[in-house]
Computed example of a mutant assay.
Amino acid sequence: MTRATEAATAIGILGTIYLALLFQWLPITLPPTIQEFILPVLPWWVLVTFGAYSLGNIGYHVMTFRDCPEAYDELQVQISQAQNDLRSKGIGL
């Protein structure tokens, strides 16, 4: 199975269990606090948690982005070559 198939399967199973608990389709008795206050807002909590994790992960990887001195040097050489080529064609820089 591909990773997308595994993710879709997991989301489908968890979604089915969530809906079964929310609409009391299973013969499981949950405490009223969980049934009335926690289950209805659980998808929003998951969404906010995923968003916070994603932003933190992106921020961390931007903060620890590794510089590439070789790429910098190569880019400087290419810029110099482009400037010389434009000067030889009569376009002054």
Rank of each mutant, 00 (worst) to 15 (best):
M1Q: 02
M1K: 02
R3I: 10
R3D: 07
R3F: 12
E6C: 01
A7Q: 07
A8P: 00
A8H: 03
A8Y: 05
L14H: 04
L14F: 14
G15S: 04
G15M: 01
I17L: 15
Y18E: 01
L21K: 02
L21H: 05
L21W: 04
L22D: 05
L22Q: 10
L22A: 10
L22E: 07
Q24F: 01
Q24P: 00
W25T: 11
P27F: 07
I28R: 03
L30R: 01
P31I: 07
P32Y: 06
T33L: 14
I34R: 02
F37R: 12
I38N: 05
L39S: 10
P40G: 08
V41M: 10
L42M: 13
L42I: 10
W44A: 14
W44E: 07
W45Q: 06
V48S: 07
A52Q: 04
Y53M: 06
L55Q: 06
G56Q: 01
N57E: 08
I58A: 08
V62E: 08
V62T: 06
M63S: 12
T64H: 11
T64P: 01
F65S: 05
F65K: 11
R66F: 05
C68T: 12
A71S: 12
A71W: 04
D73Q: 14
D73K: 14
E74D: 15
L75A: 13
L75K: 07
Q76W: 09
Q76V: 14
Q78D: 10
I79L: 15
S80H: 08
Q81M: 13
Q81H: 12
Q81G: 01
D85F: 13
R87F: 06
R87G: 00
S88C: 02
K89P: 00
K89I: 00
G90F: 04
G90E: 04
G90L: 03
G90A: 03
L93K: 02
